[in-house]
């Protein structure tokens, strides 16, 4: 498979088609060769460890700002008690999945793109092919399974961190009542919201992994090639996740 090179719209459509063929080839490869389960644990660990610290910090600051902005917006309406509700609803339904996805895209996604990109330019992927080992099953499958295991867990973690930091700001910076905050925070959430968050997480994870691996797998040569692949991987995955998020939310929460 070689990449086309033409005007932007054609290139984008061609890119989508090329990506679809890649995914199809990947599915075929896994059906034929299975998943190297031994590598999955290592990949999960790496993805989790890579993304966790950053995610916690970002989720923390998002929680703080949710509290600050919620307070600033609702106070003129006399609704400052609702801050807890605002933080937990926005956090659970929308922000936690997207932030977890973005950070995983930024950390693990770029890692995948650059790892596969370097392997491509050093002919290591060709070497796998010539040694009759399917590179898609060997390289991409463990990463995909890893991310599917890790991202939902990270989503749940972000929820807790967001609510906790929102609470901290509400009580210690804004002087609100902690009990009221938590009361409103918990009433707004249904168990199914957590489930939806997990589902979103898994869908985003699959998207991030396949897109990043695709960019790395077909990386152009030279140091610019790897840089470009990692660049495009993170932007494309982030944009696709956010766009897809609307449709998922519409299905999950729209009436």
């Amino acid at each position: 498979m070689s990449r086309p090179a033409e005007p932007l719209l054609l290139r984008t459509l061609g890119g989508v088609g090329h990506y679809a063929l890649f995914v199809a080839a990947f599915v075929r490869a896994v059906r034929r060769h299975g998943v190297p389960w031994g590598a999955v644990l290592g990949e999960s660990y790496r993805i989790g460890v890579l993304s966790l610290p950053v995610l916690l910090v970002i989720a923390g600051f998002v929680g703080t700002n949710l509290a600050l902005q919620g307070h600033a917006a609702f106070t003129p309406l006399g609704g400052q008690r609702l801050v807890g509700l605002f933080v937990s609803l926005a956090g659970v339904r929308e922000l936690a999945p997207i932030i977890a996805a973005s950070m995983v895209a930024a950390k693990a996604g770029t890692e995948m793109a650059s790892q596969l990109g370097v392997m491509r330019i050093r002919e290591q992927i060709d070497a796998l092919e010539v040694m009759a080992v399917n590179p898609l099953a060997f390289l991409v499958a463990p990463r995909l399974v890893g991310i599917l295991l890790v991202l939902p867990a990270l989503t749940v973690l972000s929820i807790f961190v967001m609510v906790a930091s929102g609470y901290a700001v509400a009580v210690h910076q804004l002087g609100l009542n902690g009990h009221v905050f938590l009361e409103f925070a918990t009433t707004g959430i249904r168990p199914v919201d957590f489930l939806y968050g997990q589902i979103k997480g898994m869908i985003f994870g699959a998207l991030i992994c396949t897109v990043s691996c695709w960019y790395g797998y077909f990386c152009e040569s030279g140091p610019e090639g790897v840089g470009r692949a990692t660049n495009r991987a993170v932007v494309t995955s982030a944009v696709l996740c956010v766009a897809l998020n609307y449709f998922l939310s519409e299905i999950m929460y729209g009436r």
Partner: peptide
């Protein structure tokens, strides 16, 4: 080439961390 990839990776993450705290 691997170093450039690292630089890109670090840039995205560190700049987001910095401006999120600034935010």
């Amino acid at each position: 080439a691997a170093g450039v990839g690292r630089a890109v990776n670090d840039t995205v993450v560190h700049s987001v961390l910095v401006f999120i705290s600034a935010n």
